[in-house]
Amino acid sequence: MADAKINTSNPDVPKTRKAFVPLENNPEVMSSLVHKLGLSPTLCFHDVFSIDDPELLAFVPRPATALLLVFPVSNSYETHRLKEDADKEVYEGKGTSEPVVWYKQTIRNACGLIGILHAVSNGSAKDFITPGSDLQKLIQDAYPLAPVERADLLYNSQALESAHHSAASQGQSNAPDAQDDIDLHYVCFVKDETNNLWEMDGRRKGPINRGQLDADDVLSEKALDLGVRLFLKREAEAGGGELRFSLISLAPSLD
């Protein structure tokens, strides 16, 4: 069962919990996972090679329904997380009381999986889920549950574990062991039905509203300014240099 009391000073999953082999930071691997679960192949993940060069951005299919920011957890990030979360209540949203579906991470080395689930469970991506699929059932069952019970659902899902295991074995690099300590972390940015941009992170107290957008997608200038660019600027200033990161979008397939 998931831990009922969330440790906000140390949000990492205890070593006694179930651990997954970390997913490779690879759009093809991520796409394979969600397609196996039941997302239509008309949507898939894509590398975003620049957030400032218009020519490189033009190669990314649009509209982008979600962004996955992948970065190494740093002291500055942990300091900011603690400061920003200090006065927040632990999130208890569920069903119609929540604007976005948020998942608390209780499986070790599964932050990539949690980020992917945030991407496909929210915004317009929900419209591309195959009826009757494992993914539809998982989200349907998760929707009315409070965060602790929802985390239990993910923890005990055989369909989710099977799809993750299959995807984790497809990477191009040698996969680390499930019990290894991994410093890379995934944060997802999604837009809700009322055009609010949300930062979704299974290590936080809950989802974070980053501001109101226009009708544009999550790769629009305003969305990048409120989300990814602000995140990277803060990290660069705190760390005294440029942050190493990757960015992946969920958007229409090229085929």
Rank of each mutant, 00 (worst) to 15 (best):
K137W: 10
S166N: 13
K137R: 15
L145S: 03
H185E: 08
N156G: 07
N109H: 08
A159Q: 11
A151D: 05
A168L: 03
L160Q: 02
E149W: 09
L135W: 03
D183S: 15
A125D: 01
S124H: 09
L160S: 04
Q140P: 00
A168R: 01
H165K: 15
P144H: 08
F128H: 11
Q158D: 15
C111G: 06
N174F: 08
S133A: 08
G112H: 06
Y186S: 03
A163L: 08
G123M: 04
H118E: 07
N156Q: 10
I139W: 00
Q179M: 14
H185D: 09
S157I: 06
A125K: 01
P144E: 06
S157Q: 09
A167V: 05
A125E: 02
D177F: 10
L138Q: 03
E149C: 08
Q170P: 00
L184S: 12
C111V: 07
S162Q: 13
K126G: 03
S162K: 13
K137F: 10
A163H: 06
A110W: 01
A146D: 10
I139T: 08
H185L: 10
Q140G: 13
Y155D: 12
Q140H: 12
L154G: 01
S121G: 09
D180G: 09
L135Y: 02
H164N: 08
T130N: 13
A125M: 01
D183A: 13
K126M: 11
N122Q: 05
S169A: 15
F189P: 00
N174T: 15
Q140S: 15
D183E: 15
D181T: 15
S166C: 10
N122C: 05
L160V: 09
G123Y: 01
D127W: 06
D134A: 15
D181L: 14
H118G: 00
D141C: 07
D134M: 08
S166H: 12
G171A: 09
F189E: 02
L154K: 01
D181H: 12
S133W: 04
S157A: 11
Q172K: 14
F128T: 04
L117D: 00
T130H: 09
S173I: 14
S162H: 11
N122I: 04
Y143T: 13
P144A: 09
D134L: 07
I182T: 13
A175Q: 13
I116M: 05
